[in-house]
């Protein structure tokens, strides 16, 4: 498959309360295997997916947060977080478990406009 498209995955939902974050991560990993240009965006409650120190033992669910650290190994290095989404939730870049690029609202909008395929779950 020679055609390379710009895929953006927009994550707007918090983890654990619903399965969306986990299953969306599964698509991201597959898409990377197709050698596409992959970006991940964390917006609104989606930023909670990247919160450090998640411990799911007590709720008996899979702690998939470590998988975000593994993304680099799949050549997925474009992780974007919207600045206001962090601010509105009282958290900062230091609270996140991976390195991300923090974008203002306009920059985020521009990035979205540059994509070929936008998937949201």
């Amino acid at each position: 498959m020679s055609e390379i498209k710009k895929f953006m995955f927009v994550n707007r939902k918090a983890p654990h309360g619903t399965i969306y974050a986990l299953e969306s991560l599964e698509v991201v990993l597959i898409t990377a295997a197709f050698d596409q240009d992959v970006s991940l965006v964390f917006l609104d409650d989606g930023v909670y997916q990247l919160k450090k120190g998640q411990q799911t033992k007590g709720i008996e669910t899979k702690n998939f947060s470590s998988a975000y650290r593994a993304l680099e190994g799949y050549d997925i290095e474009k992780l974007y977080v919207e600045k206001e989404s962090l601010e509105l939730r009282g958290i900062s870049e230091e609270d996140l478990l991976v390195d991300v690029t923090v974008l203002g609202r306009a920059e985020m909008g521009e990035l979205m406009d540059q994509q070929d395929v936008i998937l949201s779950f």
Binding site: E3, K5, F7, V27, I30, F34, I118, L119, S120
Partner: peptide
């Protein structure tokens, strides 16, 4: 899941 990625690659529009 690769079938989803493939749909993104091969179609003109993907609507979720």
């Amino acid at each position: 899941l690769g079938q989803l990625t493939e749909a993104g690659i091969k179609t003109d529009r993907l609507v979720v």
